[in-house]
């Protein structure tokens, strides 16, 4: 964003342009969030009257093993973000070199992203079973079965890998290819004349030139992990086995809609809200640096 110092203002026009967005946000986001904070101090079923219990929900939450498990699981998903960024950039670089069939690769790798979390969650719930196609292949090769969906460490890592790395790869390729395409060709030519190989070109030219796109990608990944993965987990593992893939977001769902403890669920939501605030602050820092 541009620094506003020294500019005269544009009068009412900006507010008119912003009005539809702000009205929608006030109604569908700010109001629910405020209500959410209020209800976190109550005992409430999601309808009817509520009872003020102030900090009791928070006290219960801190003592709740499920809560800490969900924090741990969410944190584990976050760890996949660097991997996702590196893998996506690397494959983008392969494609950028115009390897044979790169357009076909780009198209096929985009399919999981295209189909979305609900479809992919259901598809993988069939695919990863012990009698699914993947395990049949593994059984042919090794003679044994890998119990992806019932071994905790495999289940959580499968969800993390699929959600953060695999399902977004296609979108990342397109996004980064476009960004790299915008880099001045002469920079690449200069690097080539300097005798830079693939890796040096990637780390010294491509990535630095699209730094802001990479940062955007990281923020995008955080949003997906914290705020969008519910549908995938719900259709793939339902938080199981046990609590192995039970994330903060999934916990909010279970507390509110399986146990009807909406007040208690709101306390979890407030924690999620605080995490979101942290991501936002990180994002704002990045933007400030970019402005300077």
């Amino acid at each position: 964003m541009h620094n506003r110092r020294g500019f005269e203002r544009d009068g009412a026009a900006p507010y008119v342009f912003l009005a539809p967005l702000l009205v929608l946000l006030a109604a569908f986001m700010i109001y629910p969030v405020v209500m959410n904070i209020i209800t976190s101090f109550t005992e409430w079923k999601g309808y009817g009257p509520w009872k003020w219990i102030w900090l009791a929900n928070y006290k219960t939450m801190i003592a709740d093993e499920e809560f800490w498990t969900s924090i741990k699981n969410t944190a584990l998903m976050v760890l996949y973000i660097p991997l996702s960024t590196i893998v996506t950039l690397l494959i983008t670089a392969f494609l950028r070199e115009g390897i044979r069939g790169w357009k076909v690769y780009r198209a096929i790798l985009y399919i999981p992203n295209l189909l979305g979390y609900v479809l992919m969650g259901v598809i993988f719930s069939i695919y990863l079973r012990d009698d699914g196609v993947l395990n049949m292949a593994i059984k042919r090769l090794t003679g044994s079965t890998i119990h992806f969906l019932i071994t905790p460490v495999l289940a959580i890592n499968a969800v993390g890998f699929l959600l953060v790395v695999f399902l977004h790869l296609g979108f990342g390729l397109i996004y980064f290819l476009a960004a790299m395409n915008g880099i001045d060709k002469s920079i690449y030519e200069a690097a080539l004349i300097d005798g830079a190989g693939f890796w040096r070109t990637l780390f010294k030219v491509s990535i630095p030139s699209i730094r802001f796109s990479v940062e955007f990608w990281v923020v995008f990944s955080f949003i997906e992990v914290f705020a969008r993965m519910f549908s995938f987990i719900h259709t793939l593992t339902q938080g199981g086995p046990g609590y192995s893939t039970f994330t903060l977001e999934y916990g909010i769902f279970i507390q509110a809609f399986s146990k009807f403890k909406v007040g208690y669920s709101s306390a979890w939501s407030v924690v999620l809200f605080l995490f979101c605030a942290m991501i936002s602050i990180a994002q704002i820092r990045l933007m400030k640096r970019r402005d300077e």
Partner: peptide
Amino acid sequence: RLCDRAFVI
């Protein structure tokens, strides 16, 4: 979930 922990996991 508890049964999962005891018998599956």
